[in-house]
Design a protein around this nucleic acid. Structure first.
Length: 690
DNA sequence: CTGTTGAAATTTTTT
DNA sequence: ATTTCAACAG
């Protein structure tokens, strides 16, 4: 496969910079890839090139931001080889063996799990650990919080979610608690000592429960690399390590990479400092900026030709990012000179905005752009609520990314808790969730039972000689039977789920309203379970990569079902659509009120806005409702007046066309929108004084 | 100790 | 609107 024609064939369609990156040798490589510059294609071809020139696919590690991204890339690597087979002169047998399927691909967390299950014993970690997702972590932290009586203080102690955020931030940034509090949680600074005790207790509790949380996966992988034996083995397992979205990695992740490729040989990172939007997760843009210093001899390849957007859209987005305080990449350019300027839409309020959106979305649909090639983007999940209601009312199908996920619904979590407890009887969160579902059993008895179980080494038989309260008498024996069986069973996963479902459905009907649709969800979960090889794999994969909706499980989507995309900007990362609508582009929404405490936060919000805008290929709309309801707590008629986002000052607005929503148009088609808008604002403002 | 009721506080983005 | 916590009845 070393023959030049085949290699050239493989790289055809790449521009010179992309090609340079794809064919780069072993030295450390930094690819600075602006939005839409063919980053994925480049990475895909680099993997293909590495394989074609003799690297064993199984010795390539591809780290991505989501599992979906990894799967997509490896699928495309296969595509490259399949195409190669078709070209005359290549040996089909040779390429067939080169498929990308054996490449190690996934998120840092998923790869950490695989490696820790294999090698974790070297650092004293038993291989059958469970993984806690974000809400499990909160629950466990809450257990400790209650035990330490931190709830009964005179001033209110931070909520469990906040505590988890703080903890996570400390671990991922590798910074001291007081520093983290001062930087990101100033309203919690009074609680340093209590938080220290809380976190100590939490760490111990994780250990006795046989559990790792998301942060532990990174932390333990990092530690594993320092083990002489295991670290060496893992280092030698991979010839090449490629990292996507490097601008959104944190200190711990950079540390892992340094341990994997100490001198940077075989290391490739790809990213765009202008798109760094995860600092709340302790990601630091320093990773990408300092990469060349960290690895002397780094080759830097910069991709600047944009293949995604029309030039008018690019001019506008360049204008937005041009105002960033620090800016390291050059302006992007496109050969797509045709096309409309993006549209800045002034709306009266949220309803009006929804009206405008639906009107234009349907119009584009008529014009041949399927719903699924259009996306509505917003800063915060609940910003799309009123739009969702309106879409539902009009029977317009949509998929939402970044909202409440299927597996986060209470009934699905309940059912999973049975499987989790059977898999790991030490998991106090699973037990603490499941046991109080029985009548007469609350947090107190649940705690008692879990302690008892732990002392017995996880043998459910010890629960048999416990005397349940009268209310639970009839069901108690059945629960113990169920769990004991599940713990020992060799049944296929769907059969296990079926048993749990039979046990749980009556409980569900007692505990929740709207039991029928919930019960149907569980039937679906049973179906889904059939695709997993084992219970352990099922639990692990669901917590590491929770599907966004039941539809995500459904496999290849039917061609005839078409649906609009709604997504948070964060979840839209790396994706693109023909038409993009960015809504609530008003100060307070973008940038979010919560993220204007310091200049760094504001700069990140600017990049976030930039990411949103750069998702658009042909059509871009930015909507700003002038009047917004203050539904902070509860519904009220309180409202305020919004300013257009500060990221669109006058000189940038010039690259937009202006439009107004239906309400304005109907009110006074002849009047200049700008003037009309102000007078209206003034009138409403005055009315609000009394 | 459980389960209910009412009052009080409440900070976004996600692996 | 939702979550959290204290008070109280069973």
């Amino acid at each position: 496969m070393d023959d030049m024609p085949a290699i050239n064939q493989l790289l055809k369609g790449l521009n010179p910079q992309q090609r340079e990156a794809a064919c780069h040798g072993q030295g450390p490589l930094l690819i600075v890839a602006g939005a839409g510059t063919g980053k994925t294609a480049t990475l895909v071809h680099r993997v293909a090139w590495l394989i074609a020139t003799g690297t064993d696919p199984a010795r390539i590690l591809l780290l991505t931001f989501t599992r979906r991204a990894a799967a997509e890339m490896l699928r495309r690597v296969d595509g490259v080889f399949r195409q190669l087979e078709q070209t005359p002169g290549t040996d089909p047998g040779a390429t067939a063996r080169l498929r990308g399927t054996r490449v190690w691909g996934g998120t840092f967390h998923a790869i950490a799990t695989r490696l820790l299950r294999r090698w974790g014993q070297a650092i004293g970690l038993p291989p059958q650990f469970s993984i806690h997702d974000r809400s499990d972590s909160e629950d466990l932290l809450n257990v400790v919080r209650t035990e330490l009586k931190l709830a009964k203080t005179d001033k209110r102690f931070p909520k469990k979610g906040t505590c988890t955020d703080i903890y996570s931030r400390c671990v991922n940034s590798q910074k001291k608690l007081p520093r983290v509090l001062a930087d990101g949680f100033p309203w919690c600074e009074d609680w340093v000592e209590e938080l220290k005790r809380l976190f100590d207790g939490y760490v111990d509790r994780k250990e006795t429960s046989g559990v790792l949380d998301y942060d532990d996966l990174l932390l333990f992988w990092h530690a594993l690399m320092a083990d002489p034996q295991a670290g060496k083995s893992i280092r030698e397992q991979f010839d090449c390590v490629l990292v996507d979205e490097y601008q959104d990695t944190n200190t711990l992740q950079a540390g892992i990479l340094a341990a994997l490729c100490p001198d940077g040989q075989g290391l490739t990172v790809v990213g765009d400092d202008a798109q760094s939007i995860y600092s709340f997760r302790a990601a630091t843009v320093r990773n990408i900026l300092d990469f060349p210093q960290q690895y002397p001899g780094t080759t830097i390849v910069t991709l600047q030709q944009n293949y995604r957007s029309t030039q008018p859209i690019l001019s506008a987005t360049n204008g937005v990012i041009g105002l960033a305080k620090e800016r390291f990449t050059k302006n992007l350019w496109s050969q797509r000179n045709e096309g409309q300027r993006p549209t800045l839409v002034t709306c009266q309020d949220e309803d009006d905005q929804a009206e405008y959106l639906i009107r234009h979305i349907l119009a584009h649909c008529e014009g041949g752009i399927d719903l699924r090639r259009q996306a509505v983007l917003f800063r915060t999940s609940h910003h799309s609520m009123s739009l969702e209601a309106e879409l539902a009312r009009r029977n317009i199908p949509f998929h939402k990314y970044g909202g409440l996920k299927f597996v986060e619904t209470a009934h699905v979590k309940d059912l999973m808790a049975f499987l989790r407890l059977a898999e790991n009887p030490r998991d106090v969160v699973a037990g603490g969730r499941l046991l109080p579902l029985l009548p007469g059993i609350g947090p107190g008895r649940a705690r008692q039972l879990m302690t008892k179980l732990q002392k017995a080494g996880g043998d459910f038989q010890v629960w048999r000689d416990w005397t349940p309260p009268p209310a639970a008498e009839s069901i108690w024996g059945k629960l113990v039977d169920l769990l004991a069986d599940l713990a020992n069973t060799k049944d296929k996963l769907p059969a296990q789920v079926h048993r749990v479902r039979k046990f749980y459905t009556p409980i569900l009907q007692r505990v929740y309203d709207h039991a029928a649709p919930r019960a149907r969800d569980l039937e679906q979960l049973e179906q889904i379970a059939s695709r997993y090889r084992s219970r352990e794999r099922f639990l692990t994969e669901i917590t590491l990569d929770p599907p966004n909706s039941t539809q995500d499980f459904a496999g290849p989507p039917h061609l005839d079902d078409d649906y609009l995309i709604l997504s948070t900007i964060h979840s839209a990362k790396g994706l693109e659509w023909d038409a993009v609508y960015v809504i609530h582009a008003a100060d307070g929404y973008i940038p979010s009120d919560m993220a204007t405490r310091n200049p760094e936060e504001i700069e990140e919000e600017r990049r976030l806005f930039y990411v949103a805008l750069t998702r658009a290929k042909d059509w871009l709309y930015v909507c700003c409702p002038l009047r917004f309801y203050v539904h902070r707590y509860g519904t009220s008629d309180r409202h305020g007046y919004a300013q257009l986002t500060r990221f669109l000052p006058e000189e940038v607005v010039e690259s937009f066309a202006r439009d107004t929503s239906p309400a304005f148009a109907e009110d006074a088609p002849a009047v200049d929108a700008q003037a009309k808008l102000t007078s209206q604002e003034i009138r409403r403002w005055t009315k609000d004084l009394w």
